[in-house]
Amino acid sequence: MAADKVDPIHQFQITKLVPIHVGHVDLSFTNSSLFMAATVIVATLFLVFASSGRSLVPGRWQLVAEMSYSFVANTLRDAAGKAGMQFFPMVFSLFMFVLVANLLGMIPYFFTITSHIIVTFCLAMLVIGTVVVFGIWKHGFHFFGLFVPQGVPMALVPLVTMIEVISFLSRPISLSVRLFANMLAGHITLKVFAGFVVTLSAAGAVGVAGSILPLAMAVALTALEFLVAFLQAYVFTVLTCMYLNDAIHPGH
């Protein structure tokens, strides 16, 4: 089991906590499910307790809650206009969920749910699904005008439309892979450098001296990962807002 300490992939292993099988489908409550629940509980409790004072002059916790609210609200309003505010609960939930999940993943021995492609892909599909469903429901066939930019010469329309369709279809992939790959790569790198420290210091005095560099790297990477955790949540939110803008205003 000692090898687990330096195996950078082990941290992404899913283990069943409560096995649940429906027919042939495995719906077990796993460590991933546990940390999804933890994310929801931590984020909700924080926001509820931070805003429980309802003071006119906010304390520092209330200020953090208010800042995250205004931050997402401003991002959404800037990208999608006032009409975009109907999606505010969804965008805010996505931002808080991804942010808290990323940050929880930074705690040692904690599972990072956003390092699994299926989770980020589901969140991305929620966004794209909302865009498509709302776009068609609101604008009908006109929604597909999104793929035909105005002012393009007739000869180029088929080509441009094809590019636009491919670009639209690649959105859920880029949206999910960006978050997934960032979290995965960050955690692997962190684990690899931390593993160096462990293996090197096991090799005697020279090894201990040599492990200073990877230790410094691990410390620096930890700081970077906290930045990435916030940044990726922000990028996910901003792109969500931009895609929602396409659903609200399909004309270019």
Partner: peptide
């Protein structure tokens, strides 16, 4: 593991959405 993750994500995120939309926001 996909089926289990999708199910639990739907449950937890759905709950989170409702909590955000009805209570926190």
């Amino acid at each position: 593991t996909f089926a289990s993750q999708i199910l639990w994500l739907a449950i937890t995120f759905g709950l989170f959405y409702v909590l955000m939309a009805k209570v926190v926001l």
